[in-house]
Amino acid sequence: MKEFYKIFTKLIIVLLVVFIADRLFGGLIQKIYFNQKEISQYFKITYSIEKMDAPIVIFGSSRAYHHYISNEFQKEFNMPSYNVGRGGNFMFYQEALLKSILKRYTPDIIILDILPNEFSDKGNIDYDRLSVLLPYYKKHPEIRSIVNLKSPFEKYKSYSETYRFNSLLLPSISGWLDIHKRSQRDTLQGFLPLHGSLKMELKENKSTQPDILDTNKVNAFKTFITLCKQKGIEVYVFISPSYSLNEETNTTVKFASDFTRNAGYYFQSYLEDTTFLNNNSLFKDQLHLNIDGAELYTKKVIQIIKSHRAAKQ
């Protein structure tokens, strides 16, 4: 019993010291994280969740980030626009962002860009990527249920102040000291242009695996659309162009198209648009348009929204 008390006491001391260190280090990283300069990639998430109040908001992954020129929307519709797109973050991220935004204000128009396989079951990878939202876990209860999809223990792990900022120390210091990659400096209201063009020939992108949908991703999309509907927001769902021959009839595209249209919203896929498929000079890589492609594509999207709105009036 004496040994047990000795072990127990020492363990408690270690845990206490770790607890204090966790509060101190976590608090310090938190301070640095939330005080990053405007140009940093993590500032964009904080800005999107906590401050951004543009009436036109563009959601999506890197394809949204590089394809939708926010300024053009602003000019055409005469109201501020912001692109909250973020590379490597998909439907769960969009749902979390929307929930945080709706807590503060209601945008007029939302453009959502999805991938042709947005809802496909890709294992853990899309769940792991939810860690990008961990810094907001404590302050934003509305996103907790989404982050909890990462693992059943996420709510317990998040008690640690440091864990929530895992791997963010160096990027936060860099963002705080304003040391950034040159490309990030080109960011315009959330949009980042890509330069350079693709040199390869068009290839077929046929998957041999059956496209099995991930129920959580499907639910995230449904929630996204339903929340917008409840708030009376105009929603446009797009699948922007890729430089590959995709199947328009895949499960994600079909589901997204049916659900969006049934909700009374506009859906359009550009996967088979020959303007893009016949012109590799509009692409930076197979999945991303370059600035020329983005300009052309943004014009097309603006035209669609304009005519759609005109038809409604």
């Binding site: 770790v18 260190a21 966790d22 280090f25 990283i29 853990n124 792991d128 860690s131 792990k157 640690s160 440091t162 864990y163 900022f165 895992n166 791997s167 120390l169």
Partner: peptide, 12 residues
């Protein structure tokens, strides 16, 4: 060590 694990460990 614990702080380093929490700060820069890969949990996924």
């Amino acid at each position: 060590i614990i702080m380093l694990i929490l700060m820069i460990g890969v949990f996924d």
